[in-house]
């Protein structure tokens, strides 16, 4: 049978937690399919970072052009590796890098892709993938072709592999492609407020409707001794700064209390807050995904609820 190829991400000399999640599932699939697990990593630290992972073989792509993430060079280099390996399945995390590489190499190889995958099982000699679509409202069960396919995996879908292995490591020279260059890496913008340190977050989403209504959230946060955070649409609308954003491309938070106000709970948002000690959600749609992770929920209008809470907290 074919091999399972795992594209790893290396941060500060170590492979990411999400890469370890992919490796644990890859090992499980390879055992069922009697194939090999082959990991690919990029940069001068790759050989060392991949040395003890649970894979049968590892390819360390090296060269000046892959020292920092550069979409074009990474994609062409990965295509080189896929040309050599022709794996039955290529697993990429649904991160920024995975969004670039997954669809790009699937098209380049002329093979299908399953995006937003959160489960993979073996059925006979076929691999069945589950894709989380429509902001988590539906799942699709998809049969992968026996020859070759690519899946992009949602972080947190599988347990991280802690198994130590001794893969045979080979080096591969990075593809040489001009046309795209890194200008600078921009650190997260500084903010007077660090939402990751707050015990209580008053978090607002699209349901806030109008920037003027943010005053209600500010007043509630002040009364409860918390900080205002938000979901992506509020930042994209320019109503709150990026430093206040909870979720995949924002901050991961674990407060004692997370008040989710007018937040529907897209998978990218849930990823950043689902481990809060207590989650209370207000959303007019009782079937919204946020209600699946919240401990308590209500469908009353947040524009009525926020002042009612503030009033009580102030002892009025």
């Amino acid at each position: 049978m074919g091999s399972i190829l795992v594209v790893t991400e290396i941060l500060g000399g170590n492979i990411s937690d999400t890469s370890r999640e992919l490796l644990s599932k890859a090992r499980e699939l390879s055992q069922a399919l009697s194939g090999e697990v082959v990991a690919v990593g990029f940069g001068s630290q790759a050989a060392q970072a991949l040395a003890h992972i649970d894979a049968d073989r590892a390819i360390a792509v090296t060269g000046q052009a892959v020292e920092q993430y550069l979409p074009l060079v990474y994609e062409r280099s990965l295509l080189q590796a896929l040309e050599q390996e022709s794996p039955q399945l290529t697993m990429v995390a649904n991160t920024t890098m995975g969004l670039d590489l997954g669809a790009g190499v699937a098209a380049g190889r002329g093979v299908p892709l399953v995006a937003y995958c959160n489960a993979l099982t073996v059925d006979g000699d076929e691999i069945v993938a589950q894709s989380q679509v429509f902001a988590g409202k539906l799942l699709a069960e998809v049969v992968l072709p026996r020859e070759e396919a690519v899946v992009t995996i949602l972080p947190g879908s599988f347990p991280a592999s802690m198994v130590e292995g001794h893969p045979t490591i080979t080096a591969m020279e990075a593809a040489s492609v001009p046309g795209m260059a890194l200008i600078q890496i921009l650190a997260p913008e500084k903010s007077d407020v660090d939402i990751t340190r707050a015990d209580i977050l008053v978090s607002v989403g699209r349901g806030i409707q109008d920037p003027e209504n943010l005053t209600l959230a500010d007043e509630l946060a002040e009364a409860i001794g918390g900080v205002v955070s938000c979901s992506r649409p509020v930042v994209d609308a320019g109503w709150l700064p990026k430093a206040r954003q909870v979720g995949k491309s924002g901050q991961t938070v674990k407060p004692k209390l997370y008040l989710a106000l007018g937040i529907s709970g897209a998978p990218e948002h849930l990823q950043g807050m689902k481990d809060a000690d207590l989650i209370i959600a207000a959303n007019t749609d009782e079937s919204a995904s946020i209600m699946d992770v919240a401990h308590y929920g209500t469908t009353v209008d947040i524009l009525d609820l926020m002042p009612a809470l503030t009033e009580r907290l102030r002892g009025e």
Binding site: V111, V142, V143, M291, G297
Partner: peptide, 21 residues
């Protein structure tokens, strides 16, 4: 290259908030 989609289905949530009426 097309995918063979077996079915769409609603996820069974591991839990659901206790609703406050």
């Amino acid at each position: 290259p097309e995918l063979e989609i077996r079915r769409f289905f609603k996820p069974v949530a591991a839990g659901h908030a206790e609703m406050i009426e």
